[in-house]
Nucleic acid binder design. Structure first.
Length: 537
DNA sequence: TCTTCCACATT
DNA sequence: GAATGTGGAAG
């Protein structure tokens, strides 16, 4: 019921504000200073560092990873010419996790960000990825906050948490709050679990958080697939690409496109077939050429599609940092959410038939809401990957718990300087339809985005800034306490501006309000830490 | 070499 | 019908 309301709200294009009922359920925290790291604080062992996160569809991710995952990124412009919606691409596989170990009654905010994995630019030569120089200055960091946030631990644990809606773009001026990436660069998605404070916000004192990194989700961004092996994996596993499946690995598709009734071998395929595509690439990947993350998950014993007996065994392998939690004084002024007026949930929504439910449904944690709205993830999954989808398809992440500790973010590459940590209160812009909030910082460089007051943007009164995730997140040796500088970015809001208004916010008249549903927020939040921090674990 | 545009297919 | 996705050709 709790999650139902929350989801319902999300469905209604509203923020995940909880109903008064929800608040009551969590009343134990209301008005009380959060002391998350203190296990004695009436919370039995449910401190944030005990939270475990498992990656869903691990086997699929792993297949991609072994081949060198590539994610398509485009400019939003695809159909702006056709006055259609922008179609910035989602990630595939999508990022979904199963969370356990949360305090059922505590509220958490789940968010992800995608940070550079290294400072290289890559090129695909001779059927393999090679370093092609120094990375371009990182894009303005943006965070994608799960639309259900904040929600209780019970809510998060009840079902898979999907970040499927997260979208990527290479448009540096993207106004939709999508995550901006540079093409031909390597990135690493990260998941952050933040304990909401008494105001359902985070970034204030005592805000505890932990970061989980699944190295198999690292990828190289491209504007078109380079490695044919990846193309095939996408086609074979992404329902939307089903049209490209053919009896002969897509050859038939090519035939159809060319109006022929016989297979046609494309240039790509010729190339792929002439050049042994196996071996070297995956070899490099595993040796760190692409992944540069020595801290490999301890769960790679399943080389090919052999599912684990149960996810629990994986959880046990999760490593935990021994750092002490810290307090971060980010000066959160306002609650992340204002106590919403009671909103009636639409139960019908939650009763959506599990038509698209993945096998995970059988798992107790998998209730309806989540998957019912994400049909595309499972509908077409077939073959090797699909057959093993389930709770077994989950892997524990490398984890690092911490508080919103004062961490000095990794300096930007290139000419950019470190000044950026002064994210002044950014003005958030919201796309009425996307309901994504892009917080525009005023980082040093000129690149980036138009000023918040750009005419084509509607300025949202609420100002909120998400702190850049500390670089220690990925178990960097520097650890939580290695940096003492307090990063000034925060997550705050102006008094009297309920988060809810984000959804009501109208920014881009060209979009339909319907799409506000389920949209999470993608915030721009300063550069997150960079990969190098992960390598030295 | 890489990016963008277009046609066509699935969910 | 909207959103999503890919291949191929052109830029």
């Amino acid at each position: 019921m709790l999650q139902e309301k929350t989801s319902a709200l999300a469905e209604e294009g509203m923020t995940v504000a909880q109903s008064s009922g929800d608040i009551q359920l969590d009343s134990s925290h209301l008005g009380l200073p959060t002391t998350p790291s203190n296990p004695q604080n009436n919370e039995p062992d449910q401190s944030i560092e005990n939270i475990k996160v498992l990656l869903h569809d691990r086997e699929l991710w792993k297949k991609f990873h072994e081949a060198g995952t590539e994610m398509i990124i485009t400019k939003a412009g695809r159909q702006e010419q056709h006055h259609v919606h922008s179609s910035i691409l989602r990630m595939f596989p999508s990022y979904k996790v199963k969370v356990t170990g949360m305090n059922p009654k505590t509220k958490y905010i789940l968010l992800t960000d995608i940070v550079p994995a290294d400072d290289h630019r890559y090129k695909f030569c001779d059927n393999k990825w090679m370093v092609a120089g120094k990375a371009e200055p990182a894009m303005p960091g943006r965070l994608y906050v799960h639309p259900d946030s904040p929600a209780t631990g019970a809510h998060w644990m009840r079902q898979l948490v999907s970040f499927q809606k997260l979208k990527l773009t290479n448009n540096h001026l993207d106004p939709f709050g999508h995550i901006i990436l540079n093409s031909m660069h390597k990135y690493q998605p990260r998941l952050h679990i933040v304990k909401a404070d008494e105001n359902n916000a985070f970034g204030s004192k005592n805000t505890a958080y932990c970061t989980h990194v699944f190295h198999e989700t690292a990828f190289i961004s491209v504007t078109s697939y380079q490695n044919h092996k990846i193309t095939q994996l996408k086609i074979e596993n992404n329902p939307f690409a089903k049209g490209f499946r053919g009896s002969d690995e897509g050859d038939m598709r090519v035939s159809r496109l060319q109006g022929k009734d016989y297979p046609v071998i494309s240039k790509n395929m010729v190339r792929q077939r002439l050049i042994s595509s196996h071996g070297h690439l995956s070899g490099k990947l595993s040796t760190g050429v692409l992944s540069g993350h020595p801290q490999v998950l301890p769960h790679y014993q399943y080389e090919s599609g052999v599912p684990l007996a149960n996810s629990d065994s994986q959880e046990a392998l999760t490593t935990f940092p021994s750092n002490n939690t810290r307090h971060l004084d980010l000066g959160c002024k306002r609650p992340y959410l204002d106590t919403p007026s009671s909103v009636v949930s639409e139960e019908h929504y939650f009763r959506s038939p599990p038509a698209y439910e993945p096998p995970l449904l059988s798992h107790p944690y998998c209730s309806e809401a989540l998957s019912s709205r994400e049909p595309c993830m499972y509908g077409g999954i077939e073959g090797d990957a699909g057959s093993t989808v389930g709770t077994d398809d989950i892997t524990a992440s490398s984890l690092n718990c911490n508080m919103w500790a004062p961490v000095q973010p990794y300096p930007r590459y290139g000419m950019q300087t470190m000044e950026p940590m002064q994210y002044q209160p950014f003005t958030a812009h919201f796309n009425s339809t996307a309901s994504t909030a892009s917080v525009v910082p005023h980082p040093s460089p000129s690149m980036q985005r138009p000023h918040p007051t750009a005419p084509d943007l509607v300025t949202f009164t609420t100002q909120r800034v998400l702190p850049t995730m500390p670089s220690s997140a990925a178990s960097s040796p520097s650890g939580p306490g290695s940096h003492d500088r307090v990063h000034s970015s925060l997550f705050h809001r102006k008094p009297g501006s309920p988060l809810r208004s984000q959804r009501e916010f109208t920014g881009y008249p060209t979009h339909s309000p319907n799409s506000t549903r389920e949209q999470a927020y993608q915030f721009q939040a300063g550069l997150s830490n960079v990969g190098q921090h992960w390598t030295d674990s």
